[in-house]
Structure formats: C-alpha cells, structure tokens
Design a protein around this nucleic acid. Structure first.
Length: 431
RNA sequence: GGAGGAGUGGCCGAGUGGUUGAAGGCGCUGCUCUCGAAAAGCAGUGUAGAGGCAACUUUACCGCGAGUUCGAAUCUCGCCUCCUCCGCCA
C-alpha cells in the first residue's frame, strides 16, 4: 500500500508510474473518495465531540429527561453518519490497495516480460558432442522422477522425486545454508560488490507452511484464490513461498533500531495452483504445484534497503558461480516486477537441454509498501517511528536442480556432481 | 478434543459504569545537586487520523469485533491468543 498523503501530493506521478506497470488505477476516483471520507469523518468527529461533552456534563449528577433525550438524538446522528462512512471507507481502501508501488527510475519501462533487460551474463555454456538431453529425460531414466505415480496420487504437476536427486537437493540446501550463515562469506560478497550493508549472517528458519487468510491479505502479495490452496474447514492457506510466512512475522510490531537488519533464510515446501498455465512446462520439475524453496527475507532501515536488494542479488550470483552454472541477470521491466515491487531482478540459469535460459531466482525490492499494510515499524534512535523496508529473494528453489542435471550431464546419462556439493553427498562425484 | 484462568502503555501492575489516556513502580529523557559518577529531588515521557503556518483543537485506541447505555478499560455476546490441568499424538 502507498501512503495516501504521497498520492495526494503526487497524483500525476502516481498515475503515470502505475500506467508504466500496466495498472489502470483511477487516481482521481481515489482522491475523490478520500475527500469524501475525510468530509464524513470530520462530521462524525464533530458529533462525537458533542456526545462526549454532553456525557461529561452529566457526570455524577442525575441527568434530566431532556438531557438524555438530546443524548439519544446525537447518538442516532452518529450512528447514521457512521453508516454512510462505512461503504466510503471500503471503497477507499479497495482503491488504495489497487495502486501499485512506484518503480525506481532505473527500472526499464516495458509492456511485458519481453522488455526485461539482460544486464549481465556469466559463465561458459558447456559444449556437448551430442544433442544434450533435457533434465526430465535424464531424471526419468535414472528413476529420480516419477510423474505418473505423482499424478495418480495427487494429480498433474505433482511428482515423486527419488534417489540421488533427493540427496542432491538436500546437498543444495546444506550448501546454501552454510554460506548464508557464514559471516566471512557475506563480508567477502559485500566487499567484492562495494555494498554498504551489514555483514550480519542470516538466521535459518523453518516457518509455518500455512497462514491465516487475514495474514495473506495483509502481505498484499498474493492473488489468493488464483495462486494458493485453501485448507478446507480451516481459515488457512498453504504458502506459495516462505516469504509469505516470514514477511508478516513482525506484523503490528515496532522494533528497536538496534535490531536491524533482521535477516532470515527460511525453508518451506511451497504450493502453487499455477492457474492459467495449463499445458505449459509440463516436462520435468520446472513448474510443479508443490516444490521446496529456500528464501531470503530481511527487514531493513529505509536507508539500507536498496543496497540490501543488491546484496541479495550478489548472493544469488555468488551461489550460482560456486555451482558453476551459467546464468544471466535480468533487470525486470515495469510490467514484470509486480505490484508491491519498486524494482526486481531475475536470475536465469542456462538449460542446455532446452537451449535457453530459465528463471531460477527472483529478488524483490519492496520499500515500505508491504510494511505499511503489515504495520511493521522501527523506533529510531531519536525516538521517532517509521515503517521498515522489506526485501526478499530466492536463495535456491528446485529449479537449479534441473540446471545442474542439464549442464553437468554425461553422454552415458549420468550427472557429474558440482564440486561444491560433493562434500554434502558423501564424496560422490557422479550420480 | 474436554475443564478452568488470563489478555491494560517500552516493561511490571492498579482500576467501584462518569472525577481515567488511564494510579503506582521500573525504564528512558531533561534539569538540580556533584570535580565526576552513584544516590536523591523536580519535571517530562503512547500511537494513529482530521483541522491549523503555528501554539493548539479534536477523534479513535485498555487482545479483536459487535451490542447495552446519555456515558464502557469496567456490563453482555462472538472471536483470537496465551497459561494450567486432563485426553490424544510425531
């Protein structure tokens, strides 16, 4: 949510920037409703003031029949005015929530994901003297992936992952957790990228995989019905990322400045309905209803959040480089960064089996847009209070496994284990 | 799942339907005292919104939401959370 005061003061800018993101918001309707709301609120407050004065005058004594009658009248008027205000307030909030976050000036203006800008490419694409296979083919042949039985038990886009692929996946989690909790590693990344951020290590978290509907609404990120699953007979939704249960951790709280930055790396199974993607990416593990993911989430002082965003991207790159996976970095355009974002970066790994780069990581720069709805604040050293900034980014999901399989494949259908993962796999070099 | 109990400011804690935005204590800030510190004394110390250049005025908030009343932290109802005991269980 944006600050209504900011919208009042910058109506034209808000309109223009929303349009860049492909949001058709009526700023004039919003401001009109805002004015209406303030008008009615003023009226109600005047009536309430009268009610309070009247009640004050009757303290202790025996009120006369006339005074009580007058009190009833005022009460009636307040009730009527409140009934008028309620729908106006609802409309106001609905309109306000529709206004997306303002993109930073360095975000490329675009109409679709095709306008994202490749800002960097890293690594040499592996050369094969045969037609490289895609990861699904290799994994199914190896018995690592069983789609048929997954579908029998839970439906399409659910799979059984088995054998060495499971060991590889857990090696990936161990590898990432080890580096994100190592201050020396973080310091090096900060230094290599000239960043002005703390080197405080990430705290590993296993958060709830479900949250109340009201919590999902507060984070404002999800298009709930389209993206997540609801638990029947419970007021609970399955999370679509650990971000959804970590971001609201400090909902309604004001934290002391000394605690910042608060950095977490959370692991959960993520559930996504993937509505509107029928028939897309049906092979392998690229697009499943259920997958595992390690997610970075941090709470920052406003003056540090942009560098924190760059820091998270730098971490993502560092991890990919350690794995030796070729990738490219995309600066996402206005149309693709999403409502709450002021900036967004994707990392795409090279998939030789598909002959293209595929998204494996995202990093979101959200400013105070999410914190305003969640009411997560910081008490500054001088006693003032302000909204915090939230940042989130993928550490690893399961998609990099597809990249490992395809980039490290051998002609005989086996897969070489990336050097940095071998120690987490009992020294195995090939699977 | 069953039976009880409890939710008040940064923290602890008092609170009879009106004199309570909320006693008292702790903490914090400023001042006095002191060479300095401690101690002591005095004063101040919530958030959000609306109006105003400002001083200031005003509204809301005692877990959340409704209700009763001229008037609710206080009474009624629903919900949430936590605690204790019992049961079940990885």
């Amino acid at each position: 949510m944006l600050d209504i005061q900011f919208i009042r003061d910058n109506a034209d800018l808000v309109k223009a920037k929303s349009k860049q993101k492909g949001y058709d918001v009526s700023v004039s309707d919003l401001l009109k409703t805002d004015a209406e709301r303030r008008e009615l609120t003023k009226k109600i407050e005047t009536l309430r003031a009268e009610r309070n004065q009247l009640a004050d005058a009757l303290k202790g004594g025996n009120p006369s029949a006339e005074q009580i009658e007058r009190g009833r009248e005022v009460k009636q008027q307040v009730t009527e005015a409140e009934a008028l205000l309620e729908p106006v307030n609802d409309t106001f909030l609905t309109l306000l929530k529709k206004v997306p976050n303002m993109p930073l000036d360095d975000v490329p203006i675009g109409a679709s994901e095709d306008d994202n800008v490749v800002s960097k490419q890293w690594g040499d694409k592996p050369q094969f003297d045969y037609e490289p296979k895609n990861h699904a083919e290799i994994a199914e042949a190896k018995g690592w992936l069983d789609k048929e039985r997954g579908a029998k038990i839970a439906g399409s886009r659910f799979v059984y992952l088995k054998g060495d692929l499971v060991l590889l996946e857990f090696a990936l989690w161990q590898f990432a957790l080890g580096h994100l909790t190592d201050e020396a590693v973080l310091k090096q990344i900060i230094q290599d990228n000239n960043l002005d951020v703390s080197s405080k290590p990430f705290i590993p978290v296993l958060p709830p995989a479900v949250a109340k509907k009201s919590v999902f609404e507060a984070t404002g990120r999800l298009n709930k019905e389209e993206q997540t699953y609801k638990l029947e007979d419970e007021d609970l939704w399955l999370n679509a990322s650990a971000e959804h249960t970590m971001a609201p951790m400090y909902m309604g709280e004001t934290l002391p400045e000394a605690e910042f930055p608060l950095r977490y790396v959370g692991y959960t199974t993520a559930f996504r309905r993937e509505a509107g993607t029928y028939g897309k990416d049906m092979e392998g593990i690229i697009r499943l209803h259920q997958f595992n993911k390690l997610e970075m989430e941090s709470f920052n002082l406003p003056e540090h959040s942009l560098h924190e965003h760059f820091f998270m991207v730098a971490i993502q790159e560092y991890l990919m480089q350690q794995l030796g996976l070729p990738y490219q970095v995309l600066t996402k355009c206005t149309a693709d960064i999403g409502g709450p974002n002021a900036r967004g970066v994707d990392i795409e790994a090279w998939l030789p089996g598909q002959g293209k780069y595929r998204e494996t990581h995202t990093a979101d720069y959200i400013t105070d847009y999410q914190a305003r709805r969640m009411q997560t604040k910081v008490r500054r050293g001088d006693g003032s209070i302000q909204l915090v900034h939230t940042n989130d980014a993928t550490a690893f999901s399961e998609r990099p496994l597809a990249a490992i399989i395809e980039n490290y494949q051998n002609a005989d259908g086996s897969v070489r284990v990336p050097d940095v993962l071998q120690s987490y796999m009992g020294g195995k070099t090939t699977i």
